[in-house]
Design a protein around this nucleic acid. Structure first.
Length: 283
DNA sequence: CGAGGTACCTGACAGC
DNA sequence: TGCTGTCAGGTACCTC
């Protein structure tokens, strides 16, 4: 479900609410959602009693740094890594509140609250890994650069694109190429840059590459500013919907008029994903 | 490397 | 009502 702006919003909520909290117990109702370690009781044992020291984002992964209750000097720090995939939610709830049928993992905290991993389609995953073993958490170790990082300059972005022959939309969705971009923000960035989603990356002009660079960063920053996009059921960790759906220009707008030129926006499968674009503005 | 397919799951919605 | 097909914000894994 969520892309970079939605995960950023969730991480901000979690950070405001959960720092310094201690996880006193863990209930795993659906074992397949634990991606690492393989042994569920090891996972539970190693999470219980730990204090939440920090919470960050990398791509679409949520990284929760855990330490010992008294420890300031954490030698072998652990990371609780969570990927929400399509329908995952992390919700902060009072422990007395009833869980719905899609709550699959519950982290009970020392203040009576729960952190609940809710996941209709069960695609999401939770990993407990050593901080220096990112490769144990799915694709975390292989992520490409952060699109909003200072050191991802237009020059760096151009050189990345020039080395690739894949279609530009597919490439933007490839987490090894660039981290955190999903279907909504890829379509919106390509529209704002005026680039056809099927165009080969290395065939873009330098001007197009630069337009895409700025469009992508702008659309992600706007998405963060508006607390993400709620298309069907995304909510942040406090259960609140986002607002960026009101700012979308092409995503799910097929059949409507292009806001720039008035031609009809089309939807077409590109790289296996439905893609929304204006055939006139985007060549 | 790149393209295309399947698989993993559940629910919403359209059409009959 | 109820069946069937399609679609969904993601990723892993497979073959060619």
């Amino acid at each position: 479900m969520p892309e970079l702006p939605e995960v950023t919003t969730i991480v901000r909520n979690l950070k405001e609410q959960l720092l310094e909290r201690i996880i006193i117990s863990v209930i795993v109702r659906e074992e397949k959602l634990v991606g690492f370690p393989e042994d569920i009781s090891t996972f539970i044992d190693e999470v219980c009693g730990k204090k939440i020291l920090d919470i960050n984002r990398r791509g679409k992964y949520i990284l929760i740094k855990l330490g010992d209750e008294l420890g300031e000097d954490i030698v072998d720090g652990k990371l609780l890594v969570i990927h929400l995939r399509m329908t995952g939610k992390l919700l902060i709830k009072d422990g007395t509140e009833e869980c719905d049928k899609h709550t699959h993992i519950i982290f009970r905290l020392d203040n009576g609250q729960d952190l609940r991993f809710n996941n209709i389609r069960k695609f999401g995953r939770v990993y407990l890994i050593d901080e220096d073993r990112l490769e144990d958490a799915g694709g975390l170790a292989e992520l490409g650069p952060e699109p909003l990082a200072d050191d991802l300059t237009p020059e760096v972005f151009r050189s990345m694109l020039k080395r690739r022959k894949a279609g530009i939309k597919s490439l933007l969705l490839n987490q090894k190429f660039i981290a955190g971009v999903g279907n909504i923000y890829a379509d919106e960035a390509l529209f704002r840059a005026g680039i056809n989603p099927g165009k080969k990356a290395d065939s873009l002009s330098e001007q197009e590459m630069d337009r895409l660079y700025y469009a992508l960063r702008e659309v992600l920053q706007q998405g963060i500013k508006y607390n993400g996009t709620t298309f069907s059921d995304y909510v942040n960790a406090l259960g609140k919907a986002g607002d960026f759906q009101h700012k979308l220009l092409v995503y799910q707008k097929q059949g409507e008029k292009c806001p720039r030129c008035g031609h009809e926006i089309t939807r077409e499968k590109i790289g296996g994903r439905s893609s929304h674009y204006c055939p006139h503005c985007q060549e």
